[in-house]
Design a protein around this nucleic acid. Structure first.
Lengths: 202, 202
DNA sequence: GAAATAGTGTCTCTTAGACACTATTTC
DNA sequence: GAAATAGTGTCTAAGAGACACTATTTC
């Protein structure tokens, strides 16, 4: 038994608000992420959920461990989490716009983590509410991937994957044609495995 | 300051030997992965490298943090590492065939970690020696991905990515036509960003 | 020549992206 | 009707997989 300070849990909890990504932070000047000490013999994922419950009032819709960082004052176990658009923060926590390009190392790592998982896990769908328009969904993908996507192509491959189903509701934002609302309803396991990609290496 | 046992570093170090993947383990009956206590204020990556140096005599060609697990006797910080085919283990450690489907949780997590990164980081190339045949490379991809790949298609997209260059050496394995040796020599950054994939979700 | 392995040419089918269009709303 | 946003049809080019082939070695 060595005398060590217990590792700390750091939670980067992201949502989609006002057409932008927002991250949960402590109120006040510094944009610090919520943290908690990890209990002896407590599983880190449980600690992350407990921390979310304390700062948000609920367990996130999706959560994943980002990794461990050695920081000045000890070890930080960073978690990325995602909650549905419209979820309110509690007490002394609030949603802040995600800083473009900058921010603390743990937040940047969490955003990279989300970006790397968006095509394998339902990150984008958990960021949205129970129903959403296809423009909403595309905007979330574009924010997380930090690049523009082709509208027709996005919709075609989305439909081909059978991940969503239309509702009979439509939403009008004031100007322009109303958009149909969809819900996340994955039907297919996974299709044919596709080729190895070498184009991301180098 | 709480009284806690320091987290442990666990190293899942993989190589390619005798046409199969092998993992470095302690000699003897139990197939336990090498471990080390993490020093207070020591960065985990440094501890993983030091552990590799102690059990292999060298720093791995590629290394990545897999994550933190709460185990019975404390926290384990798991690292996946890869060394070139032909590297010898030292002292009381040896290469063991990777158990198909089974094995300890930390080893399974490390193998999933490698599989998820093979198309974004040069994992397969670091598993091979400085020169290799295209059949070697394809076999490593097939072992890591656990599925067969199409030979002509594999080679076409590999060449299109400009990741390797031919040497003027050929290797003959006894039977069959000798194969040309290639080396890893990535030339291109990355091509055009391609579409979002929905087919891995669901 | 048979067997084994390396390596290639060609066809087809799928699909991503471009482009241009139609549809439905507010003003 | 203009502006804005949603949604679609068609063409093209790239690429993945199937198939069948050629090439070079050992026996």
């Amino acid at each position: 038994m060595a005398v060590t300070s217990a590792p700390r849990i750091v939670l980067a909890c992201v949502t989609w608000a006002n057409g932008d990504l927002a991250v949960l932070g402590a109120s006040g000047a510094g944009a610090t992420l919520p943290t908690a000490a990890l209990g002896a013999s407590q599983p880190p994922a449980d600690a992350a959920d407990a921390l979310a419950r304390r700062t948000l009032g609920r367990v996130p819709a999706w959560r994943s461990q980002v990794g461990v960082l050695r920081e000045d004052d000890g070890l930080s176990i960073v978690y990325a989490a995602v909650v549905a658009s419209g979820t309110d923060a509690v007490a002394e926590f609030q949603w802040r716009p995600v800083p473009r390009g900058g921010g603390a190392a743990s937040l940047r790592a969490a955003l990279v983590h989300l970006r790397e998982r968006i095509d394998r896990e339902p990150v984008a769908f958990r960021l949205l509410g129970p129903t959403f328009t296809l423009s909403d969904l595309q905007q979330v993908y574009e924010l997380l991937l930090e690049r523009r996507l082709h509208k027709a192509s996005f919709r075609r491959s989305l439909m081909a994957a059978h991940l969503i189903e239309p509702t009979d509701a439509w939403r009008s934002e004031g100007r322009g044609r109303p958009a149909q609302l969809f819900r996340y309803a994955p039907r297919r396991r996974r299709g044919v495995q596709r080729a190895v990609r070498f184009d991301l290496l180098g």
